[in-house]
Design a protein around this nucleic acid. Structure first.
Ligand SMILES: Nc1ncnc2c1ncn2[C@@H]1O[C@H](COP(=O)(O)OP(=O)(O)OP(=O)(O)O)[C@@H](O)[C@H]1O
Length: 761
DNA sequence: CCGGCCGAAATTTTT
DNA sequence: TTTCGGCCGG
């Protein structure tokens, strides 16, 4: 009982940490200590006498949750708070209240693959035509609906050639199929819980009473369903603390909405808003680069952020010839820094927009003897052999899991295949049975060719045996399964190099089960194991105490920090991704993504790009990311290591400069985009969130007038300048593309171009 | 009714 | 360059 950690906090942080009862909104920039506030606040509440099980903390990844727990334990010695991701928390609740939504406690959590297979059958059954919409369109529509808490009856997909009634039928059929299989998809975890809380006031009241203090980190990336859940639990005891940074919202595509911040203020009119303005993480230079970049976003309110950290070294932009050289260049720098004992491997992180970009890095790191970890915990579990293995476990826990049944039927290969499986499905559907039940039925064999009888009976027998395996820890169980199912034998018999790799993965899977057993000394159930696997987040399996370089996507980097950061692939089409720049909101999310990456760096930051990059086996010339042009020239050091005379080199010695006319060379890239005057907010600590968020009106202020001299960015040809505009302004533009060396006549509404705002307009 | 071969497409980020 | 789906021979 010391409260000693309070001494290490700023006044603003201390205010938030020691805030008593009532709603609290902490809106602050990167590295300002939001997570620290959450952690210390939990410790504070515990020391103030709140029981651990009355505290609920919701984080973005399991890893983040674990870190907070460890820290809280080291500060207070107390355990037993409720902490996890929204999905994890909801799964836990749903186990308890499963019956209320037609499920049983042992329900399975389906991943996207399983969900899509279920949906495919729902689409067939509802006779939904997959003409104007693909299966994944339907999946996306349902996903959106669920995140908006829309049930099938209220499903309102945006206008489509398909009648509304049909949409509702597919959605309903999909839900019915999931329920039949005693399964949920990811979104159902939230939807079902939100529904239970909404429809059962007694349960809501009981849980509200139970969770006296609720804290949500990374609040800017919550969706409507998540907010509804947090809100429902904080009505009688409105002690809800949320922390977030609108500039770090990078999951809009998954339903996250900043509206939640505004809703929060509406639902809790007496909310206290705390701003943290001091960054403790990055050097002055890194922070200024980050700030200049994010200032380009229009749908944003400016935020004041300063640091007392040293200026540090300049941010670098490195240009390489190819992705191989990019990767090797980074590997060499890391090697050098480590061998000269300036750094350790674990001081470094490399971020990329797309997972595939890790490939060349991995190759180069292996070649250079640089140890690394790819931080993608979920990918491992998506491998076929792992999914197969998991299917064996799943069917034992939930025999109604038809997706697992279907997988098991197919690997190892048995003497019956998909066709027979379809027949069994049909039979099962007619009688309302699960597949596992169906193959026990004598009647089934009358509908199948007699040849199928023997293999099916053998299969049924194997299943029965699996079900009877006594459970004594996950590892022992999986070993038995591997043996009895014949899976291990099947892989060994293959003998191909791929099979070897699969065997290695199976080995690794066993070690995952071993770690699970160790983590749960009392004996974690199989159900629990499957849930952990299903809800794993990418950084979970990353061990930061291991001395190696961390490789991860920009998304996975959220919330982390490293002394030295590299961000690769700053190219049009990668970052910003594809055609996201056509839509301002999407482009701004891409910019925020880069902003998140930049602000992970404590001391050194390097952005890189390659002049050529291999794409689908083709070597292609790349276009630099327009974001590079948005970095303040005075703060960055550009170094061209490509030795290439071709390509779009907008930095340093560019064809743009040679042609000069319209460019203000002194101001460098600054002249490309208009710098918005960001009015500073009056000093003080307490603000309304409204002031920190964009006004609706800002969104319409995006029309850019086009005249001769306007700059145009083309998706294929890069930068150009308008030389002539049609009499009737809407008709055409004559654009001179610098890298192309000639004029093109384009429509001003051509989706491939974007008109850049001019200076002083 | 099954597995293998060949041609065309490749649409991110993740709980 | 890889992966998936469709078609055909056993
Ligand atoms: N008052 C403080 N004194 C010293 N260091 C601090 C203080 N507050 C925060 N820090 C340090 O600053 C870094 C960033 O803190 P934290 O991760 O909590 O910030 P954050 O606002 O959650 O960041 P982000 O939003 O970028 O993820 C951490 O290394 C933390 O230890």
């Amino acid at each position: 009982m010391s409260f000693s950690y309070l001494a290490g906090l700023t006044e603003a942080q201390k205010y938030a940490v020691t805030f008593g009862e009532g709603p609290l909104l902490v809106l602050a920039g990167p590295g300002s200590g939001k997570t620290r506030v959450i952690t210390c606040r939990i410790a504070f509440l515990l020391e103030a006498g709140i029981r651990p099980d009355q505290i609920l903390a919701l984080t973005f990844t399991n890893k983040a949750a674990q870190e907070i727990v460890d820290r809280v334990v080291s500060l207070t010695g107390q355990k037993g708070i409720w902490i996890g991701t929204f999905h994890g928390f909801c799964a836990r609740l749903l186990r308890r209240y499963a019956r209320l939504v037609g499920l049983e406690e042992n329900f399975t959590i389906y991943d996207e693959g399983d969900s899509l297979r279920v949906l495919r059958r729902a689409v067939e059954r509802a006779q939904f035509p997959l003409v104007s919409h693909s299966l994944s369109d339907v999946a996306a529509a349902i996903h959106r609906a669920k995140n908006q808490l829309q049930l099938p009856e209220f499903f309102m997909p945006k206008d489509s050639a398909v009648p509304l009634e049909l949409w509702r039928q597919v959605y309903a059929a999909y839900q019915e199929e999931l329920r039949r299989q005693n399964a949920v998809d990811f979104d159902d975890l939230l939807l079902h819980v939100a529904r239970i809380l909404g429809e059962h006031p007694d349960i809501r009241g009981e849980l509200d009473d139970r969770f006296r203090f609720i804290l949500v980190d990374e609040y800017q990336d919550t969706n409507l369903a998540q907010y509804a859940i947090a809100r429902a639990l904080a009505i009688d005891y409105p002690n809800l603390t949320v922390t977030g940074d609108p500039d770090q919202s990078i999951y809009r595509w998954r339903g996250a909405t900043l509206r939640n911040i505004l809703e929060f203020e509406k639902d809790y009119p007496h909310v206290t808003v705390v701003r943290l303005e001091e960054n403790y993480r990055s050097t002055g230079r890194i922070l200024r680069v980050a700030d200049a970049l994010i200032a380009r976003n229009r749908l944003r309110k400016p935020k004041h952020l300063f640091t007392r950290n040293p200026e540090g070294r300049p941010v670098r932009v490195l240009i390489f010839k190819s992705e191989q050289e990019e990767a090797l260049g980074i590997a060499e720098e890391i090697s050098r820094a480590v061998s000269s004992r300036q750094r350790r491997f674990r001081d470094f992180a490399v971020f990329f927009r797309l997972n595939v970009l890790s490939r060349p890095l991995e190759t180069a790191f292996r070649q250079s003897g640089v140890p690394y970890q790819v931080v993608n915990g979920t990918e491992f579990f998506r491998r076929k052999e792992i999914q197969d293995l998991l299917a064996y476990l799943r069917i034992v826990v939930n025999p109604r899991d038809d997706e697992a049944f279907a997988r098991i039927c197919q690997t190892p290969p048995r003497t019956f295949g998909v066709r027979t499986l379809d027949r069994i499905r049909e039979f099962a559907r007619q009688r309302g049975l699960s597949l596992a039940e169906a193959i026990q039925e004598e009647d089934l064999f009358r509908e199948l060719s007699p040849r199928m009888r023997k293999p099916l009976c053998e299969f049924a027998e194997m299943l029965r045996k699996l079900m009877e395996i006594p459970y004594g820890g996950a590892e022992a169980f999986v070993r038995t399964i591997l043996d009895q199912s014949g899976y291990l034998q099947y892989l060994k018999a293959e003998g191909t190099p791929e099979a070897q790799e699969r065997l290695a993965n199976v080995e690794e899977f066993i070690s995952v089960t071993r770690q699970f057993d160790l983590r749960h000394p009392g004996g974690g159930s199989l159900e629990q194991f499957l849930e952990e696997v299903a809800l794993a987040s990418d950084p979970d399996r990353w061990d930061e105490t291991d001395d190696c370089v961390a490789l991860m996507t920009l998304h996975a980097a959220k919330g982390l920090e490293f002394p030295v950061v590299y961000i690769v692939g700053l190219e049009q089409g990668l970052l910003p991704y594809e055609d996201s720049w056509r839509d301002m909101e999407e482009l701004e999310e891409e910019r925020r993504l880069l902003f998140v990456g930049i602000t992970r760096a404590r001391e050194e930051l390097t952005l890189t790009r390659a002049v050529y990059r291999e794409f689908r086996g083709q070597r292609r010339l790349t276009i630099p990311s327009p974001f590079l042009l948005e970095l303040p020239r005075g703060e960055v050091e550009i170094e061209d290591r490509s030795e290439e005379q071709v390509g779009f080199v907008l930095e340093a010695t560019s064809p743009v400069e040679e042609r000069g006319q319209n460019f203000d060379l002194a101001r460098g890239p600054e002249c490309f985009l208009k710098q918005e005057e960001n009015p500073r907010k009056p000093e003080g600590r307490l603000y309304l969130a409204k002031e920190l968020l964009p006004h609706e009106a800002d969104k319409s202020a995006t029309e850019v007038p086009v005249t001769a001299g306007s700059l145009v960015l083309h998706v294929d040809h890069g930068l150009g300048r308008v030389v002539e505009v049609a009499e009737d302004e809407g008709e055409w533009l004559e654009v001179e593309f610098f890298a192309l060396g000639r004029h093109l006549r384009l429509s001003p509404t051509d989706p491939r171009i974007r008109i850049l705002p001019r200076k002083n307009t």
